[in-house]
């Protein structure tokens, strides 16, 4: 754990669904300035909800039941609604999941970006318009276009420009490359990465694309069934996973130069509210044993700046990484 100096830190985030089932269960996250932290896992693991919880925007009927988020030492939960709203966009910005649906279909993109600028800075209409055109021109989008006239990549770039326009300190990017052509994906990631380098932006990159993660992330947190099961420096986690689930994800990922058979993880993630006792991954885990089903393994330190929630020892995990062959 990075300690108290993190720019944004979340403690004990808990989001419950309509039936009271935990969709996000006790997640801790630390985002450092100038670092990309990737949040990976299968869909339904609670990655998006975790991102939205950081913004205080858990969509009903789900609700945030517990947890604290501090940004630069300020407890966001203690802010008045008005102040809390200001933090959205200017403090923590979001690049939403679906670029096709996240822009207002009836307004020109320039007007939408100008509106975001004016919500966070005392700008006049004209100034905001000019600034908005410039920000859009930078990403190759015409401010007078309506969203339906833009390509998928343009929409995503417009949304990123919109999120970055108020100069946030933290960016939550939810699957920013999922709907894009591979050729556009790199450009979109670079756009975010440039801000990280130049301005020390802290980024939470929600993704199931381990290729993208390997490209830009400094740290990786792996989520399974609403919890973080492994966390650590990207290089270390991706090259030597300590959790069997991480190893399973890596086996699925296509890798350059290593065209090998993709091995799917057997079974499906558990339904929220119907988690097995003990380790939630046990029913799908190739290394599961009696001990795993008895008690849930908590996150524990495992090497430099790494944590894992699994009973396996280093040696056992390493053997797993090499696979059965």
């Amino acid at each position: 754990m990075a300690g108290v100096s993190a720019l944004l830190s979340a403690r004990g985030l808990r989001v419950a669904g309509p039936g009271g089932a935990a969709l996000v269960d006790g997640v801790d996250l630390d985002l450092e300035a100038g670092e990309v932290t990737a949040l990976v896992g299968e869909s339904g693991a609670g990655k998006t909800l975790t991102g939205l919880a950081l913004l205080g925007l858990v969509p009903p009927p789900a609700r945030m039941e517990a947890g604290a988020v501090t940004l630069g030492g300020v407890d966001l939960g203690a802010l008045a609604p008005r102040e809390r709203r200001r933090v959205r966009g200017a403090g923590i910005a979001l690049v939403p999941q679906d670029p096709a649906a996240a822009l207002d279909p009836v307004a020109r993109v320039g007007a939408q970006l100008a509106e975001v600028l004016r919500a966070h800075a005392p700008l006049g209409r004209r100034e905001a318009r000019i600034a908005a055109s410039a920000a859009l021109a930078e990403v190759g989008v015409d401010r007078d276009d309506h969203p339906h006239r833009l390509s998928g990549g343009q929409r995503q770039r417009a949304l990123i420009a919109m999120a970055l326009a108020p100069r946030p300190r933290v960016l939550v990017a939810d699957e920013p490359t999922a709907s894009l052509d591979p050729s556009v994906q790199v450009a979109v990631l670079d756009l975010i990465d440039a801000r990280r380098r130049e301005e020390g932006l802290a980024v939470l990159l929600i993704s199931h694309d381990l290729g993208a993660v390997a490209r830009v992330a400094g740290r990786v947190a792996v989520m399974y069934a609403g919890r973080i099961v492994e966390e650590g420096p990207a290089r270390a986690v991706l090259s030597a996973p300590r959790h069997p689930y991480t190893a399973g994800l890596l086996a699925l990922a296509p890798r350059l130069g290593a065209p090998r058979v993709r091995v799917p993880i057997p079974g499906a993630p558990p339904q929220p509210g119907r988690l097995p006792p003990g380790c939630a991954f046990a029913p799908r885990c190739p290394a599961a044993r009696e001990e795993c089903r008895a008690a849930r393994p908590e996150l524990r330190a495992a090497g430099p700046a790494r944590r894992v929630a699994c009973v396996l020892t280093d040696r056992e995990a390493a053997a797993l990484g090499r696979g059965p062959s």
């Binding site: 939205l52 200001r86 959205r88 966009g89 939403p96 999941q97 679906d98 996240a102 207002d104 966070h120």
Partner: peptide
Amino acid sequence: SEHVAAARAHGLSE
């Protein structure tokens, strides 16, 4: 809709 959720995330007033 998604774009309304996005507008909230951008920090626009309700």
